[in-house]
């Protein structure tokens, strides 16, 4: 039986009166590559932000490894504004900050790259190891954590070798070409030792050759790290080629889901994308 890694139940995300995510339920199982697609403004990034703790969902629940991670219901002024369904179904308010969720085993990349510009490639990845430290401020300052520091540096070097960034490890992260910056962001997320990797448009702005390399890279991550991956992507070649299952969002609502074949031939999906210029479809 499939082991559930991530499960969303009726997640609704409202910004005032704007319903960015409406009653989204979805599931990602261990070892899967699942894609979340949809036209611009469909609510894909919002879904990521709700999952990773950047936003508190207005209503609904999120489970990680079958344990409740986040749950919320409309309170105070949202009570009146709430436009979603399942009112009253959720009664607990469990919210977590992003760092706690990352520690639990989820790591993400950003649609608009967010590397730390003053740091080298190596340091960018090394900082992502900070959350797995056992040292405290005192022992770290007075170098009582030598062993841990050395081990983490070793792990980072190894990771950079695997993802093929070891030759540029001492360069400033922002001096890398675009494709490598994306790769570095993925490496940084991997450094937190996640069980689930969330990639927000990893191929955005890449040329076809870079996109092919990335597709291969994502497959490699799944195999090498035994990783479960949820990704947002507009490049249909990439999505259809790599995903086990696909969820399609439009105006915050789930309009279709299933294997690439099923989704591709779904009339609702075709309608949603109609009129939207799509270079790859």
């Amino acid at each position: 039986m499939a082991e559930s890694v991530l499960r969303l139940e009726d997640v609704t995300m409202q910004f005032g009166g704007v319903v960015a995510l409406n009653n989204l339920s979805m599931e990602v199982n261990k070892g899967e590559i699942v894609a979340l697609i949809g036209p611009n403004g469909a609510g894909k990034t919002t879904a990521f932000n709700a999952i990773t703790g950047v936003y508190e969902p207005t209503n609904g629940a999120i489970y990680f490894m079958d344990e409740l991670l986040v749950e919320n219901y409309p309170k105070e002024k949202m009570k009146k504004l709430y436009a979603g369904e399942n009112n009253g179904k959720y009664t607990k308010s469990v919210v977590k900050t992003p760092d706690v969720i990352t520690k639990a085993g989820m790591a993400r990349t950003f649609q608009n790259i967010r590397l730390w510009p003053s740091m080298t490639v190596f340091e960018n990845v090394l900082v992502a190891k900070h959350l797995r430290r056992t040292s405290n401020l005192f022992s770290a300052t007075f170098r009582g954590n030598r062993k841990e520091e050395a081990r983490q540096r070793e792990e980072v070097a190894e990771l950079l070798r695997i993802v093929g960034l070891d030759d540029v490890q001492d360069e400033l992260s922002t001096s890398l070409p675009y494709g490598k910056q994306r790769r570095l962001e993925i490496a940084r997320a991997l450094a937190t030792n996640p069980k689930l990797l969330l990639l927000d448009e990893p191929a955005a702005g890449m040329n076809p050759q870079e996109t092919d390399e990335l597709t291969e890279f994502i497959g490699q991550i799944r195999n090498d790290f035994d990783m479960t991956i949820l990704l947002i992507e507009h490049h249909m070649n990439l999505v259809m080629g790599i995903s086990d299952r696909i969820y399609v969002l439009d105006f915050g609502r789930l309009i279709s889901s299933g294997t690439p074949d099923v989704v591709q031939s779904d009339q609702k999906v075709i309608d949603a994308y109609l009129g939207v210029a799509d270079e790859d479809a």
């Binding site: 990773t52 950047v54 900050t97 992003p98 760092d99 706690v100 990352t102 520690k103 790591a107 993400r108 950003f110 967010r114 590397l115 730390w116 510009p117 003053s118 740091m119 900082v127 992502a128 900070h130 959350l131 940084r188 997320a189 937190t192």
Partner: peptide, 14 residues
């Protein structure tokens, strides 16, 4: 300092 959103997403308790 460089990007606190990214820092928090990488597990740093702000």
């Amino acid at each position: 300092r460089d990007d606190e959103t990214a820092a928090e997403a990488m597990g740093i308790n702000l």
